[in-house]
Amino acid sequence: MSERSNMVGDLAPVVGYHLRRASGVFAADFAAAMEGTGMRQVLIGILAVVSGSPGINQGAVGRVLGIKRANMVSLINELVDADLIERVVDTADRRAFALTVTPSGATLLAACLRKIETHEDRLLAGFTAAEKNMLLDFLGRIERRGAPPA
C-alpha cells in the first residue's frame, strides 16, 4: 500500500473516490488544453455528435450525451450564435430542428480533437494500448449500468 493510500485511510479501496480524483485531473487538464478555443467539453460533445450525424435533431443529441432538454436549447443557441452549428426546421418533423456543423464548426472541432488527443496522450502516457482499451472497457461497463434509482 502506498503512502498516499495510507493518508486517505478508509477511502483507499473505494473505486468511486479514485474515479472522482482521476476525473478531476482529467477535467483540469482538459480545460487547460482547450484554453483559448472558447470551447467546453459539452460543446465539443455536441459538435462531435452533430458532425457524425448531420441532420440530427437537438433532442436526439441531448439523449446521446445525457443532456437535459431544458439545457439543450441554450447550448445549441450558443453554438448557432458562434456560427459552429446551423439549425433549420426538420422537413420530416416541422416541430423539430435539424442540426448540421458549419465549415467553421468542422474546423474548430478538428482543432479541438487534436488538442484532446494530445491531452489524453499526456495523461495516459504510462498506459499501453491494451491498458487504455481495458480502461475504456471498464468505464463503459460502469456507464452502461446507469445512474442509481432516485
Rank of each mutant, 00 (worst) to 15 (best):
Q58H: 13
D93K: 09
L136A: 14
V89F: 12
A111K: 08
G24D: 03
C112G: 06
A22D: 09
L75I: 07
L65D: 05
P149A: 14
D29L: 01
R145S: 09
A22S: 11
S2L: 14
S23Y: 07
N57W: 03
I44R: 14
A96L: 07
D121M: 11
L135R: 02
M39K: 07
Y17N: 04
K115R: 10
A92C: 04
I76A: 07
T128N: 03
V64L: 11
F30C: 10
R114H: 12
A33V: 09
L19M: 09
G62I: 05
L75S: 01
M7N: 04
V42Y: 01
S104T: 13
L109I: 07
R21C: 08
R87N: 09
L136P: 10
R20D: 05
M39C: 05
T118R: 15
E86N: 05
L75T: 02
A31I: 06
G16P: 08
I142D: 11
Y17L: 03
R94N: 14
L43A: 06
P54C: 08
M1A: 13
N71H: 01
F30H: 06
T107W: 11
A130I: 06
S104P: 06
A106F: 09
I142H: 11
A111G: 10
L108Q: 03
V89K: 14
S104W: 08
V64M: 15
D121Q: 14
M1L: 12
R114Y: 10
V89A: 06
G9P: 03
G66E: 13
A106R: 10
L79A: 14
V73P: 06
I46A: 04
R21Q: 11
A33L: 00
L11D: 14
C112I: 01
L79R: 07
A32T: 09
L124V: 05
D83C: 05
I46G: 09
V42D: 07
I56R: 07
S104E: 10
V88Y: 00
D121I: 12
G59W: 01
I76F: 02
D83Y: 03
I44E: 14
A96R: 13
A27P: 05
E131Y: 08
I76M: 11
F127K: 06
I56E: 00
K132I: 13
A28D: 14
I116G: 11
M34N: 06
E3C: 01
G55A: 08
C112T: 00
N57R: 00
P103T: 01
T107A: 15
I56L: 01
H119I: 10
G24V: 00
P148G: 15
V15I: 07
L109R: 03
D83N: 11
H18L: 10
G36N: 00
G36F: 06
K115V: 05
N133V: 08
I142Q: 09
P13L: 05
G105Q: 02
G146T: 02
G140F: 04
A48N: 07
V49L: 01
L124F: 02
I44K: 05
A150D: 10
N57K: 00
A125K: 12
T102G: 03
